[in-house]
């Protein structure tokens, strides 16, 4: 029979919270990175691109471990954050950071492809019509890359819902604090008699992912913004 425990519901809530925060946090940075990759001619672009895409090909556990080293008490980021009283290890913040880093390349890749399909002449036209750089960004570039951005956000959100490897190393698996759906499933499968419970959460996971896809598809259609000229 399908039933969820209190811990399961908390895990679902945490998963949604982590995925939402990670996606929103990564959005401005991801948009900026995509813009640089799509439009700038700067030197070392290939290097930057490789760096951004690294989490896509590295085992998440490796990323988690590197994050743990950086954010640990003796890590360079951990030391800075420690001075202002912020600790991310074994906290929800850690789960958000792990998801943000792992999902980042997916976000950037989608937005970048969308941006590259924009005819650059639209931007030059707006500049000659008296719009400055920021004005052009908000009135031309962002509206024209809206669909791609939405697609990237969806992809990243879904990826964050499923994040496991980096999260378990950086944030641990603490029920009610950092235990998201995949971590809860992992725990059930390693507990005798937990199979049914694991399956329940699997169903939830499938339902959530599917809902995300449907919502993004609907939003996409409702926007009705066509890039075709």
């Amino acid at each position: 029979m399908f039933s969820l425990t209190f811990d399961d519901i908390t895990a679902i809530k945490l998963s949604l919270q982590v995925a939402t925060s990670a996606t929103l946090l990564a959005l401005p940075l991801g948009y900026g990175a995509a813009y640089v990759l799509a439009f700038s001619n700067m030197r070392g672009k290939a290097l930057l691109e490789g760096l951004i895409n690294l989490p896509l090909v590295l085992p998440p556990v490796v990323i988690g471990y590197l994050l743990l080293l950086s954010f640990g008490k003796n890590g360079w980021l951990g030391a800075i954050l420690g001075r202002i009283g912020i600790n991310v290890i074994f906290t929800l913040k850690g789960a958000v950071i792990a998801s943000a880093v792992v999902g980042f390349p997916l976000l950037v890749r989608s937005i970048r492809i969308g941006m590259e399909s924009i005819d650059r002449h639209y931007m030059t036209a707006s500049r000659t019509l008296g719009a400055g750089w920021w004005d052009t960004l908000f009135s031309i570039t962002i509206p024209l890359s809206y669909k791609a951005t939405l697609a990237g956000m969806t992809l990243m959100f879904a990826r964050s819902l499923g994040e496991f490897g980096a999260t378990i190393i950086l944030a641990g698996n603490i029920p009610g604090v950092t235990q998201t759906i995949p971590l809860a499933i992992y725990q059930y499968t390693s507990t005798p008699g937990g199979d049914a419970m694991a399956l329940n959460l699997c169903m939830v996971s499938i339902g959530l992912s599917f809902t995300v896809l449907l919502i993004s598809e609907a939003a996409n259609r409702a926007m009705g913004v066509s890039r075709a000229s």
């Binding site: 005819d119 002449h121 639209y122 030059t124 036209a125 707006s126 000659t128 019509l129 031309i140 509206p143 024209l144 913004v225 066509s226 890039r227 075709a228 000229s229």
Partner: peptide
Amino acid sequence: GVVFQHAHLFPH
């Protein structure tokens, strides 16, 4: 002002 060879009207 510039009028381009292809109008480049903003499609959105």
